[in-house]
Simulated assay, not measured.
Amino acid sequence: MLVDWDELQHTVEFVSMGNEAVLCRKTGKIFWHTDLDEDIEAWPDDADDEEKYLVIPDKKELDLGKALVLEFARECLPGEFDEIRRIFSKRGAYARFRSLLLRRNALDRWYDFENRATERALREWCKANGLTTREGDPPAPEAK
């Protein structure tokens, strides 16, 4: 099954915000569902049929949650590891983690680390589910 890589990446972000999405195994079409607004397209009545649809995972299901943060801390901010581990032992961890990253001028490094890990995990998920990806158009050159 061929799927659009950019659309799949955006869909994982969408699902990671508490929404749902499925991929039709026959057509490769992705259906999005949210309780916050009307669905962009009609949600299939049989979306729970695993033979017809593949549920798009969120970042947590791709193991991109707390474990990834701790891996980043070990590799990139070893002196902050204990503090970051303590931050993630309580609610509201990501806001406090972001504040720490801002204080340490490490926010861009975190985003790069997270993006690389997300891409690896999503490509592995595609492979495990027999999906091949079609890359989107390259970004337009920046205006000078």
Rank of each mutant, 00 (worst) to 15 (best):
I87T: 00
V22S: 02
L68T: 13
N105T: 10
L68S: 14
L101M: 01
C76S: 10
N105F: 09
F81S: 12
E119K: 08
P139H: 09
S16W: 13
E80W: 03
V55P: 07
T133F: 02
T133A: 06
D49H: 11
D58H: 13
V3E: 01
E83I: 01
E50V: 05
T27P: 01
G92T: 09
F81C: 12
E38A: 12
V69D: 07
L107N: 00
F97E: 00
L122W: 05
E114S: 12
K59W: 04
D39S: 10
D37T: 14
E114D: 12
D63C: 05
C126I: 08
E124Q: 12
K59I: 01
R85P: 00
L8M: 09
I30W: 02
A67R: 14
F97G: 03
L122E: 11
R74A: 10
L100H: 07
A73F: 02
K26D: 04
E119G: 08
L100Y: 09
E83V: 01
N115H: 14
R104N: 03
L101R: 00
R74T: 14
G28T: 03
V55E: 06
W43A: 07
K60Q: 06
C76Y: 08
W125I: 11
V3F: 00
P141M: 06
N115D: 14
A117H: 10
D35P: 07
K127P: 08
V3Q: 02
D108P: 07
